[in-house]
Design a binder for these strands. Structure first.
Lengths: 340, 340
DNA sequence: CTGAAAGCGCTAACAC
DNA sequence: GTGTTAGCGCTTTCAG
């Protein structure tokens, strides 16, 4: 390494026989410094290859200019879209973004969040892990009045800013659509019910059935973790019922795909025999065959909004919280389209 | 905000009527401190809700415990896989990870890299932007002896650690495979030739043709930016040649898909009439129909290796550089499989 | 085993 | 318009 000890403002000051504070002010374009000295200082800074030490400045200012983002898994289309949107806005506003993934493990999430606190992030944007059921690590941020924004998976009992999609309306819309297409027995693959998102999707489904006067049949709902394998297990189970469903509202696109492949292999035609709708609009859903109807979740926009919101909070010290509910959009594709 | 000014080691010290240095040492498990005092100190730290201020510690230690990662676009499967792998390793080793995306713009990349330097990242992992053709911002890291690791898209003229896949072999293998399947006129959609990866893929293609005694026809190569639209434009052009190709080696999966859809809409059968192979093994390539043959790039592993390598450099001050070439794997699927 | 003191590089009263 | 001074919170010689 040979710490070539970087030039500091003192080096510039010495060179010009002026004080370090003047240099600092000049470099920060303080109006009280004359244009001449500013230019001289900037020239010397350049010639020395000076780069401000943000660490020092941050310590002094008690502000890290950094926003923390915690997601279950970076390498998941929806989450990487959110990160991408948030990074975009944050960068333009002069903030850095540190990212960690919880791998859906509560223990790792706690660890990460505490480490971000120690790094004095100015704000935290988080979608909690599936597993997480204790929230002290997040309440810490609240207590210290460090802006905290939940997205997608929020914690009901923590009163702070939240950006979610209208999962209830999504579930409702999917179900109504299937009914409109003439499907009579609609099943549902639901995600973990401790997560609000999955809970709401299921309730939207139930409400749509009710509104349409369709008897709700508990046995048509299968709650699982919505992995690809779960999808196969669940569809197998549902199809082996005495009175199997003729349509499935899948809690995400992953299970929609695996269920679809299973059905296809069994010679069941989609959408003629069984209709399928997913949730999330993963990129693959539009290119598979048949293409999968789904609910589009605006990940990139969600990230942008989360970053905008948290920056407003960081800079304006607002104390009022809001929950932004982004609209869901039903994307009708082949897997549920009987042309009705 | 009401900076509730966090408790510091001095607060702990005052409480126990000891010195801050002792507290610092205790908290860092310095062996010179007696177990008793350590315990007392830790108890008080807990009761005060003390969290070390990493910023201050970093400034003092001239080490940020942070690794910077720069990718063209976070929201791209391959890159998010790399990030995920790197974050995984970094976190376990006690490093934070700050991430930015260049959007493939040289100007933004320069900006990001300089900002990361100012933030005193301990090392930088980067895949350069398509556009980037000047490298002073990266040479800066070299000059200051801050570990720099390129992945995927490396800069030949900068001598440092690199982790790449064997693009030449990949291009070669794809082409050989198409030849083995009986295709006679093989076209190629190539990416920007200033990027080594695309350059190598093309040369692998050319070499395979040569080895098989197939005349190389320049008109069958179309260089573009490999967007979805580029794929359509390119395939249109190639298919309108007097003597059109009967197989296309596409520089990535995106163009493979858009070309495939174009051909399908024209009633051209795949793989019977025209064979298609992509590159990168995007998740969609295995679920579309026909599924797309492609070259698998181990993104997650690449990220892990990059992080391992840079951490070794940060901690051991090694000065020798290595280029790790990860093997490519040809994944044969329907789009090029005539069963030969 | 513990304390005193200095300093990482920067900023911001407060002077003049 | 510029300088002096005092820290931000932590670590680390050097003393004892």
């Amino acid at each position: 390494m040979t710490k070539n000890s970087e030039p500091t403002i003192h080096d510039i000051a010495r060179e010009l026989k002026i004080s370090a504070s003047t240099v600092s002010r000049a470099l920060n374009d303080n109006p009280r410094i004359s244009l001449k000295t500013k230019e001289k200082i900037k020239a010397v800074a350049d010639s020395l290859g000076y780069r401000p030490n943000t660490l020092a400045s941050n310590l002094r200012n008690k502000k890290s200019n950094t926003i923390g983002i915690v997601v279950p898994l970076i390498n998941r289309y929806f989450f990487s879209a959110v990160i991408s949107g948030a990074e975009d806005v944050a960068f333009k506003a002069g903030y850095n973004v540190v990212i960690s993934q919880s791998n859906d493990l509560a223990a790792k999430e706690i660890n990460i969040v505490q480490s971000m606190f120690s790094n004095r992030v100015d704000g935290l944007i988080i979608s909690i892990a599936m597993q997480t059921d204790t929230f002290d690590h997040l309440k810490l941020f609240q207590r210290k009045h460090i802006p905290l924004v939940f997205f997608d998976r929020a914690v009901p009992e923590i009163d702070t800013d939240k950006i979610v999609v209208d999962d209830f309306a999504g579930g409702y819309r999917v179900t109504q659509h299937l009914i409109d297409q003439g499907y009579k027995r609609i099943g549902h693959l639901a995600g973990p019910q401790n997560l609000r998102t999955y809970f709401d999707r299921k309730n939207g489904y139930i409400e749509a059935l009710r509104k349409n006067g369709i008897a709700f049949d508990e046995s048509l709902i299968n709650v699982n973790r919505l992995t690809s394998d779960d999808g196969v297990t669940a569809i197998k189970l549902l199809m082996s019922l005495p009175n199997p469903p003729d349509a499935i509202f899948c809690g995400n696109d992953t299970t929609a795909l695996s269920a679809m492949i299973y059905l296809r292999d069994k010679g069941i035609r989609i959408p003629e025999d069984v209709g399928i709708v997913g949730f999330s609009n993963e990129p693959f859903s539009q290119v598979v065959s048949p293409s999968i109807s789904t609910i589009a979740q605006p990940g990139f926009v969600m990230g942008q909004k989360a970053a905008e919101l948290i920056i407003r909070k960081i800079e304006n010290r607002e104390r009022t919280y809001q929950t932004i509910v982004l609209p869901t959009e039903l994307v009708i594709r082949e897997s549920s389209n009987r042309g009705k």
